[in-house]
């Protein structure tokens, strides 16, 4: 009735409306085996953390005791948790990582193609490749397909050597290149043990593909518009960014999304409960050229 009698809705009307189709939170929470009050208090304080009124450390200090009481062994988060890798404890956001299951990879190169399409890399450049090695002779031989993006090393040699700090490690684990600063000296290419970096020689598919030059991939979230001769990122170094621009919109990297064998997993390595963390802890896990100490964030499953 009220709806028809007034030309516009009052705030109370909204809450009334909402009450009808949003389930009562108390009732819902009561069905959970865990403490409802704790949950509500945490939700309230979490909002304070987001607003900046409460420090995340304090938040954890207040709640970790009751959380451990409530969840026991399953509770596994918070900055002071022991046994954590020190390199990931700075900052609190996700630390992206990738796991590639070599047993599931069929070597179809879908990742390579989707990466090229997503990042619009010019001819001769591919952020992702699938390396095929054949061991043994027919009929006793095996083929290994090794998909190889940038490893986003935690100790990246490329970052060590860049004379301009144009390439650096972000808090979320991704190694980025600031193409507006890069001078194109290619020192990082020589320094990368995985051959992950490519130089943009300024080539284009415009001959074969109409409209190729119309847009540059928004790498690292930067819109650059048309691909123009001599404009950044031409004549600078480029590489896989774990599709940072897609992550920003909450999407997985293109190669992960399109993998037909579901061989690629992507997620937050700093969360010990994430799929990637669990897979990375498996005895099948290994990293490329581990002995170099570069600590790649891309983990392979044998």
């Amino acid at each position: 009735m009220a709806i028809h009698s007034k030309s516009y809705l009052q705030p109370e009307d909204y809450s009334k409306l909402a009450d009808q189709f949003v389930p009562n939170s108390d009732k819902v929470l009561a069905t959970s085996p865990y403490d409802s009050e704790l949950g509500k208090n945490m939700a309230r304080d979490a909002r304070k953390v987001i607003n900046g009124k409460l420090k995340i450390e304090d938040f954890h200090r207040v709640y970790s005791a009751s959380l451990i009481k409530e969840f026991g062994d399953q509770y596994a988060s918070g900055p002071t948790e022991p046994g954590r890798n020190s390199s990931t404890s700075a900052g609190t956001g996700p630390k992206w990582g990738m796991v590639i299951d070599l047993k599931k990879c069929v070597g179809c190169d879908t990742c390579t193609v989707s990466c090229k399409a997503e990042n619009r890399t010019p001819p001769g450049m591919s952020y992702n490749v699938v390396l095929e090695t054949i061991k043994g002779d027919y009929p006793n031989f095996s083929i290994t397909n090794l998909p190889k993006p940038c490893m986003q090393c935690d100790n990246p040699p490329c970052v060590q050597v860049c004379p301009t700090r144009a390439t650096y490690k972000m808090e979320n684990g991704i190694v980025i290149i600031d193409n507006d600063r890069c001078i194109g000296c290619r020192y990082c290419m020589v320094a990368c043990p995985y051959g992950s970096r490519s130089y943009d020689f300024g080539n284009s598919y415009e001959q074969e593909m109409v409209g190729y030059n119309d847009v540059t991939s928004p790498e690292y979230g930067i819109e650059r518009g048309k691909r123009k001769k001599g404009a950044v990122p031409e004549e600078t170094v480029r590489k896989c960014s774990f599709c940072y621009h897609r992550l920003q919109r909450g999407e997985e990297p293109a190669c992960v999304e399109t993998c037909i064998g579901d061989a690629r997993y992507f997620g937050d390595m700093s969360d010990p409960n994430s799929v990637v963390s669990k897979l990375a802890a498996s005895p099948r896990a290994f990293r490329l050229k581990e002995e170099l100490g570069t600590k790649p964030r891309v983990v392979y499953l044998r």
């Binding site: 507006d180 890069c182 001078i183 004549e235 600078t236």
Partner: peptide, 15 residues
């Protein structure tokens, strides 16, 4: 060097 226009960055930003 690929981008002579950026070259001063190597002097300004010291890694």
């Amino acid at each position: 060097i690929g981008r002579p226009d950026h070259v001063m960055n190597a002097v300004i930003y010291w890694n």
